[in-house]
Design a protein around this nucleic acid. Structure first.
Lengths: 151, 151
DNA sequence: TGCAAATTTATGTACATACATTTAATGTTG
DNA sequence: CAACATTAAATGTATGTACATAAATTTGCA
């Protein structure tokens, strides 16, 4: 469906505004679908993303600083997302012996198992970008990179 | 900058995953810039969006249901965003005489003035989509519409 | 060494999101 | 018309986002 019909706004100020709204709307649309899929596993999207970063490090630990660096949304609050994962016993937190300011965060066996179950269920494939072929994917990536090329 | 470098993740599972991450990341990037611009006027992005919908209706009122229908993020909570705007005297809320379940929401003179000041400051132009020319904008809109064409 | 600056994480506050539930008014139907 | 369903908005709760500040530790340098 065209974005005009999707948000019932037939006229945009210009094509820039239309593209902006389409971009933000589509990203939200994708995230909503992903979040719904993770919900059946008791995870939110940011929690899932952090678990995945931790698995990438496993068996090495990650610090909060490393999580922030790798997160899509860098301004969110990694500490509190780790709080939730710790409550669910999906990660552990121990003071880093080499630098007692830092905290070593590790994914647990339960966390690894959960990720595996989620991936077996094919949840991570559910994003609508599978609608696009190789040429279109390349086009899209180029356009998005260009948008962010302001400074 | 390419998305690989932006989030310091050199390898993606496939091009679909890369496009998905690029899309979500770029939308967040745009919204963060917009939000920062509105902040100087004491508004958040959703508050601004609702004010703009109300101006579109002006001098007719809007109901909460209409706001939700037009909002980019339909699952957000329009009631409470209107609460904030009402506290700032940018909108008024009165029970709809024709249907006492509904609430008539109207933008005030102060709200209209604020929107005008924001637009004079050119804040709404700040989105990075201005990097794209007409052909690219059309390409982008087509690709995004296609992504959402699952069901 | 000692002390200020920098680093790392945690916490506080305001706002927004997601979703379930509640409250009040209106429609519907036997 | 009474009982029940539906509709419209508000409220409750958990989580996340944005940003400022605090607390603890380490670093650097006079």
């Amino acid at each position: 469906m065209r974005i005009e019909d999707e948000i019932k706004q037939p006229i945009f100020k210009d094509e820039h505004q239309k593209a902006y709204i389409n971009l933000v709307y589509t990203a939200g649309w994708l995230q909503l679908r992903q979040a719904a899929a993770f919900k059946t596993f008791g995870l939110t999207l940011p929690q899932f993303n952090i678990l995945r970063i931790l698995r990438g490090q496993h068996p090495l630990p990650a610090t909060v600083a490393l999580l922030i660096e790798r997160m899509l949304d860098k301004t969110s609050n990694a500490s509190r997302i780790v709080d939730r994962l710790e409550e669910k016993k999906l990660v552990t937190r121990t003071v880093c012996p080499a630098n007692r300011r830092a905290v070593d965060i590790r994914i647990t066996k339960a966390g690894l198992d959960l990720l595996e179950r989620i991936e077996e269920a094919g949840v991570t494939q559910s994003s609508g970008v599978t609608q696009l072929n190789a040429t279109e994917l390349h086009q899209l990536n180029t356009l998005l990179d260009k948008i962010r090329s302001v400074e």
